[in-house]
């Protein structure tokens, strides 16, 4: 192992232990490494912004390839900083307006491409024929029909829950909206379970780093 790698592993291990020390209680060791981490992240961001974005995409075309109009991007970007001046802050709206205009155009396309296929696929046959079963599926006709009916019931119930244009007085609407809310709770439960798993994975990664990479165990 190269000495820089060894040093990197030691710094990583001490940093990990320092940040985990917060679990016990707030302490100076944790504070020191918290500040170090923030400083390093900020420094890395500046360097990477120049290396990966500004230098190849803005500086090189402008200075080396003679595409001088790129200098205008500096002016447009600089207008964002007028937000710090009460007198000139109105100028920042020009840049913000340009960005919002560009994004608005894209959102039309994104929305159509994202939701239309989903709406199309929600039209499922409630009585499935043999020809409707996709190749390789292990479901029977009856199983797939039940699956589709369940899908449709849940879809309608959840959409009913989000109908806010009128008061839910009708018993059918109330029952459907309640069922929809219950189904949403199931979904949130699944998301919570997944979140726990994600957090555990991050912990395990750090523990494995300490055990295996640093101490050579396992």
């Amino acid at each position: 192992m190269v000495w820089t790698t060894t040093l990197g592993v030691w710094v990583g291990a001490i940093g990990t232990l320092a940040l985990f020390s917060l679990i016990y209680r707030e302490n100076r060791f944790y504070r020191l490494f918290e500040h170090l981490f923030i400083g390093l992240a900020a420094g890395f961001l500046i360097k990477s912004t120049w290396d990966e974005t500004l230098y190849p995409q803005w500086w090189t075309p402008m200075v080396k390839d003679g595409q001088w109009p790129w200098i205008l991007a500096l002016g447009l970007g600089g207008l964002f900083y007028t937000i710090y001046s009460k007198k000139h802050s109105w100028m920042s709206r020009i840049s913000i307006g340009v960005l919002l205009g560009l994004l608005s155009g894209q959102i039309f396309q994104t929305t159509a491409n994202e939701f239309i296929p989903q709406i199309q696929r929600s039209f499922k046959p409630l009585v499935v024929q043999a020809a409707d079963i996709p190749q390789g599926s292990q479901l029977t006709q009856l199983g797939m029909s039940l699956n589709n009916i369940l899908f449709m019931v849940i879809l309608v119930c959840v959409i009913t829950y989000f109908l806010f244009s009128f008061e839910h007085k009708n018993k059918v609407i109330t029952g459907s909206a309640r069922t929809g809310r219950l189904m949403l709770m199931f979904a949130f439960g699944a998301i919570f379970g997944s979140t726990v798993m994600a957090r555990m994975a991050l912990l395990i990664d750090r523990v494995w780093f300490l055990m295996h990479t640093w101490l050579g165990l396992g």
Binding site: Q106, Q109, T110, T111, N113, E114, P117
Partner: peptide
């Protein structure tokens, strides 16, 4: 969403 919305299709 960018892949699906902008280039997926």
């Amino acid at each position: 969403k960018n892949w699906i919305g902008l280039v997926g299709s």
